[in-house]
Design a protein around this nucleic acid. Structure first.
Length: 479
RNA sequence: GGUCCCAUCGUCUAGGCUGGUCUAGGACGGCACCCUCUCAAGGUGCAGACACGGGUUCAAAUCCCGUUGGGAUCACCA
């Protein structure tokens, strides 16, 4: 017992999703703040799966949650612990409460309760349980019965929330909570308390929507003999219509963001700034987040999820991450788009060479795929309107001279190309734009691309020549 | 309806606890200009907010009360 205080003071937090669907953005943010706090304080981060609703929970969903956390880099130290493996524990604790006279059997049927709630509501009264089974003292009910916890009715329950400050609830609004259903399974509010208590959770960090559960859980902690953990209730994440983030707002699963071409570090960075701040800083490395994270700077009001800013953050990461790393993340996207190894091999320098010229113009990995298209194929698709405008008969001799000059030169470096192009411009008295744009269309089939020298480098000498020659023919045919 | 939470530019936020340095700062987005071989990126600049009303005080974005508005929650779901 002497060691207990020491073990109790250790910081232990948990993320406790219910596996009824995918891991959504709000869940990731909750997990992130738990993880950050644990890492910041050298504590332990536990993953607990709240799957007591057997009808709605699936193994597949558990896997998806873990995949999502792995992708975002939120590693856990203990777990996953499944509540369905612990049903006996809850039952035992519930019966313990009953034997100590802190809980009682209730034989009111769900239908009766529902009817009474409606009546009460119609009369404008409180819809809480009227307590009619409280004094029956049923020791062994013969009909189906649920076990209710005797909630304190005097005084107040005060919660010192790390984010919202002191929250006071009058105990007379507290309901006699059902802790064991008539089918013998524990309810959410009970199993959570048993688990948090048994797992020595020091800080319960969860969504705002649980604030009203807290005064119901605190007396349970006390009745069970557990120290009451500290609480931190995170503000909600809203959609652009200020309603809770949902499927209507587009992607809500984290893995959907992976598919849309976001880097996990970027998503995490965006999410950490949604409700938390460190002065004016916008971009944080994981190390910095861990170092600076605190509840003092967690916002107490809800935040609207802004996809535009997420894109901007992602673009920042695309630019600061090593090309080799970006290339690694990009490759699966290229493959999914149908570009095989042979297509990639066409680019001198491979996927990695694609990164520097394209990343200034890409906000997501998906943007790269489109931008890279002209360089991955043998003969590209020509934008007809662009060809008509830029690949004119008048332009043909200039293009031909350029082609002849680069063909004659054994070197294909940027410096050489620059010298050739500038010489051509001077001799013909042209402006750079006059020649660069037709060249761009000839080489990429588009009016928008990286700089002309970068384009030629990504194409290589052979394809450059071949495409310029092809467009000369095309230009002459326009006559 | 009861209970609880929240309220600074369109959005994310700094500042608020410890009132004066805030004619309210930064970021995304918008607009303009610069740079420029296209598009971007980058640079510079502009527009843009303390919800409202009362107090307290020499002084309030900051403290107190109220109003309004938003949200959460009231299950034998989690």
């Amino acid at each position: 017992m002497i060691g207990q205080d020491l073990s109790m003071s250790k910081i232990r937090v948990r993320f406790a999703p219910s596996p009824t669907g995918f891991l959504h953005i709000g869940g990731v943010r909750t997990a992130l703040f738990n993880w950050l706090f644990a890492r910041h304080s050298g504590g332990t981060f536990i993953l607990r799966i709240e799957d007591t609703d057997k009808d709605r929970s699936t193994d597949e969903a558990i896997q998806v949650i873990m995949d999502g956390m792995k992708w975002t880099g939120l590693d856990w130290d203990e777990g996953p612990i499944r509540q369905t493996d612990r049903l006996e524990v809850y039952r035992e604790k519930a019966m313990d409460l009953f034997h100590r006279g802190l809980a009682y059997w209730c034989v009111c049927t769900p239908e009766e309760l529902e009817a009474r709630r409606k009546e009460a509501q119609a009369r404008g009264e409180s819809i809480k349980y009227d307590g009619r089974c409280r004094n029956r003292a049923l020791s062994e009910p013969t009909e189906p019965a649920a076990l209710r916890f005797i909630a304190p009715q005097d005084g107040q329950t005060v919660i010192h929330d790390l984010i919202k400050g002191e929250i006071i609830f009058e105990n007379n609004v507290l309901d006699d909570l059902i802790i064991l259903r008539s089918n013998g399974y524990a309810t959410y509010n009970f199993s959570v308390v048993v688990d948090d208590g048994l797992m020595n959770i020091s800080h319960v960090i969860r969504g705002d929507d649980h604030v009203n559960n807290t005064p119901r859980q605190v007396p349970l902690f006390r009745a069970l003999g557990f120290p009451v953990p500290k609480f931190a209730h995170l503000p909600m994440i809203l959609g652009s219509d200020k309603a809770r983030l949902s499927k209507r707002h587009g992607a809500t699963s984290v893995l959907a963001y992976q598919e849309m071409g976001y880097l996990p570090e970027a998503l995490v960075n965006y999410l950490v700034r949604l409700g938390w701040s460190h002065g004016d800083q916008e971009i944080f490395s994981i190390k910095e987040m861990v170092e600076h994270f605190d509840f003092k700077h967690v916002q107490s009001s809800a935040a609207v999820f802004n996809p535009e800013k997420l894109k901007w953050v992602n673009a920042q990461y695309l630019r600061k991450t090593e090309p080799r790393e970006v290339a690694k993340a990009l490759t699966p996207f290229l493959q999914k788009a149908g570009y095989d190894d042979a297509a990639i091999a066409r680019i001198p320098g491979g996927v990695e060479a694609l990164i520097p010229p394209l990343r200034e113009r890409s906000e997501t990995l998906v943007d790269f795929v489109d931008g890279a298209a002209p360089f991955l194929v043998e003969s590209m698709t020509m934008d007809e309107a662009a060809a008509t405008k830029h690949l004119t008969v008048a332009m043909a001799p200039t293009l031909k001279e350029f082609a002849d000059l680069i063909e004659a030169d054994s070197d294909f470096s940027k410096e050489t190309l620059e010298r050739i192009l500038h010489g051509l411009i001077e001799r013909q008295g042209l402006k750079m734009g006059k020649i660069a744009q037709p060249l761009r269309v000839a080489l990429t089939g588009r009016t928008v691309s990286p700089g002309i020298y970068e384009v030629m480098a990504l194409l290589g000498k052979d394809r450059t020549l071949q495409r310029v020659r092809a467009s000369i023919e095309r230009a002459l045919a326009q006559a």
